[in-house]
């Protein structure tokens, strides 16, 4: 089965999304703001894109600043699948 090409993190509001972006940038992670893909029906109008290499550390960093109400989507091709990340 193919691995995800990237992960998309979805937030409850644009304010939380920007807080998350700032948090991840402060941790030196590569992350970018993108419009919410139309296939994803939950969350605010912007979301964060990051690579599979980053995702574990990114989720830990977000949890440390009490950003827990998020949705995580794995991109495979043009599809986005909701996922609960586990690094095993």
């Amino acid at each position: 089965m193919d691995n995800p090409s990237e992960y998309v993190i979805v937030f409850s509001s644009t304010n939380v999304a920007i807080k998350a972006e700032q948090c991840l940038l402060e941790h030196g992670m590569k992350v970018s703001v993108m419009p919410l893909p139309s296939q994803i029906k939950a969350g605010c109008g912007i979301c964060l894109r990051t690579s599979p290499d980053n995702i574990s550390a990114a989720l830990e960093a977000l949890a440390n600043v009490q950003i827990s109400e998020i949705g995580l989507y794995a991109r495979k091709g043009s599809a986005y699948a909701k996922t609960d990340f586990t690094d095993g």
């Binding site: 644009t14 920007i18 807080k19 972006e21 700032q22 703001v33 419009p35 109008g45 912007i46």
Partner: peptide, 18 residues
């Protein structure tokens, strides 16, 4: 417009307000 879009001009407003 802050909080409305992903492109640089909108994101810059969002970031500076944050």
């Amino acid at each position: 417009n802050a909080g409305r879009s992903f492109y640089d001009a909108s994101a810059a407003a969002s970031r500076e307000i944050y």
